[in-house]
Design a protein around this nucleic acid. Structure first.
Lengths: 331, 331
DNA sequence: GGGTGGACTGCAATCCTTTGCAGTGCCCGT
DNA sequence: ACGGGCACTGCAAAGGATTGCAGTCCACCC
């Protein structure tokens, strides 16, 4: 049905090889020949068959994207960025969702790796060793996680926390609670670390309340412990947790930001719509996806750079001040 | 690097044809031969090369998914359903996001159609004619839209609206406002229609306030007009709009549900977290994705059924009552 | 004028799997 | 004992594009 390269060659009066070159190595063919080929391509609506090309080049023109949960707005945005950037390079994206199951991670990447040139792996929970093993048999770019020797793009969590703490301290807060996410999460560790440093540098005090699920429910569960610390401000692992805090605090009659200021991380769409609107550290999500794609494609084009393995992207968060933070209450 | 079918054949002491048949038409090869092949496959970790197979079978084992906006939680859930079901059938999914640009729709589907066996097209804004043209050169399943002659899965919007209106009327509401989505949207039309019917049947009154963007901002923009209608309840095009309404009503000091009851549609995650928690018509989103995949794969397996073109899925919404609806205020 | 090189172009092999057709060998019926 | 048929297996072509190598042609230089 669809035209193939020989149809084009026949119509243009050249050999298939010339058509192939006219399309992929334009410099190698005479301008007038190239024009004839272009005309034939146009007329027939020819597009090279990807399977056939893939068979010989060994490249599929496809990348994989593995995320824990597509329905999580953070990953949805990221996926959007990946998808947009990939299309820009005429590369297709296979998406796979682990459904938050860390055990499925490696298997999915392996299954995917047979069909794609490389994989963008988001927020993996696998150990460094497992990641290294995965990277053995396919090209991988990590997002939201760093592991030695593997390329990736991550956020500067320390810096984001510094901004949040500076904001709170400027508002007069001295005792700041911290609601962590899953203990094994790379982000939790780095955010906790950044928080400790920032609080110390500004002569304030940190009151960690432990680890909670990175969800609305997690925030609800943490709220009462936050209150019990006597802190006047709280930084939550992410916006969902912060919104859960807001809900529970409201139902206990605790005023935000009157009695307690709340800061989240991510800046998902929902945060703007929360009541009060949530102050948060905005992480450039689509940007992370875009950079991951660039990194991956660069590695595929030039495997040397893959060997060097030191490709990294680092993104900075930006504090978005809304209504959930205010001056510390006078005691 | 990876083993190919000849490696397997050599190891098993058979010809490549036999290996191929042992894997895809087990009935055709002797049990002991099959076992030898299986052992060789196992030992070499052989997996057939998809590109080579696709080249000859004409099937890629891949489907496309086109959505208006991946970051919209409604489509994110749908994508999740599609992806899960496709994996279950060992089919990969290409996702593409039109970025809400109706003009990009057809082009994207066409580009995709070269690389996939079929496409799931969500909430298309294209005209019936354009859709028919698209369906000409690729197998398509529509979601959230019906068009004559094209298979698809859609929600019974009339029924959902009936549930919402019955709920409101039971609470004593007699005048119900309706905030529509984009005028060209299929869902807007059907929801408006269902609403009119339901309101009429229950001897209440509908006060449509026009068409708004299906977003938080759209809801903010519509709120004052809703208030001006004098209605005691409002049904919004979707939850995002309803949450926008909630925000603007709150800032105007109008109590929900004291002064005005609000109902949304979709039941996105955010709705549960709104304040007050939103009463809404829950649409089974992942289910729609799953059914769309089944429909598409069935059509691909048996093109006859595609010709008949009458494959349809219909899903029902379910009213979830939360805190944004209450008894009509006594005047 | 002949030789050299450059600029193109074409041939043919190759990537890996599937599948129509043509065997091969064996069993069974006559 | 022979022919037919069955069950299984192998051969070889096909599918569409890329690419190393070889060839052609022309221009230019000596």
């Amino acid at each position: 049905m669809a035209a193939n390269i020989r149809d084009v060659a026949r119509l243009a009066g050249v050999s298939p090889s010339t058509v192939s070159r006219a399309l992929s190595l334009p410099g190698m063919v005479n301008a007038t020949t190239r024009a004839r080929v272009a005309a034939a391509v146009e007329q027939l609506g020819y597009e090279p068959n990807r399977a056939a090309r893939g068979l010989i080049t060994g490249r599929t023109g496809t990348i994989g994207l593995v995320v824990p949960d597509l329905a999580n707005p953070f990953f949805a945005s990221l996926t959007k960025g990946v998808q947009a950037r990939a299309r820009h390079h005429d590369v297709a994206v296979f998406v796979a969702d682990t459904d938050e199951d860390p055990a499925a991670e490696a298997g999915l990447v392996r299954a995917l790796s047979k069909q794609v040139d490389g994989v963008v792996l988001c927020s993996p929970r696998a150990s460094d060793e497992e990641l290294a093993a995965i990277a053995q048999d396919t090209t991988v770019v990590l997002v939201n996680r760093t592991a030695v020797g593997l390329p990736g793009v991550a956020y500067d969590n320390e810096d984001g926390m510094r901004q949040a703490v500076a904001h709170l301290v400027a508002l007069g807060h001295r005792r700041i609670a911290w609601v962590g996410g899953p203990a094994t999460s790379w982000s939790t560790q780095h955010r906790g670390f950044g928080l400790r440093n920032a609080v110390e540098a500004l002569r304030a005090e940190l009151a960690p309340v432990g680890n909670f699920a990175p969800t609305y429910e997690g925030g609800m569960a943490a709220a009462d412990q936050v209150v019990a610390t006597g802190a006047t401000a709280v930084v939550a692992y992410n916006d969902l947790v912060a919104i859960g805090l807001l809900a529970r605090l409201h139902s206990r009659g605790i005023s935000v930001p009157g009695d307690l200021s709340v800061v989240g991380v991510d800046d998902i769409a929902m945060s703007r719509m929360a009541r009060p609107a949530l102050t948060t550290v905005r992480l450039p999500k689509q940007e992370a996806g875009r950079i991951a794609v660039e990194l991956l494609l660069a590695m595929l084009d030039d495997p040397e750079s893959a060997a060097e393995g030191s490709k990294h992207g680092e993104l900075h968060g930006e504090l978005i001040v809304r209504d959930s933070t205010g001056p510390a209450p006078q005691k």
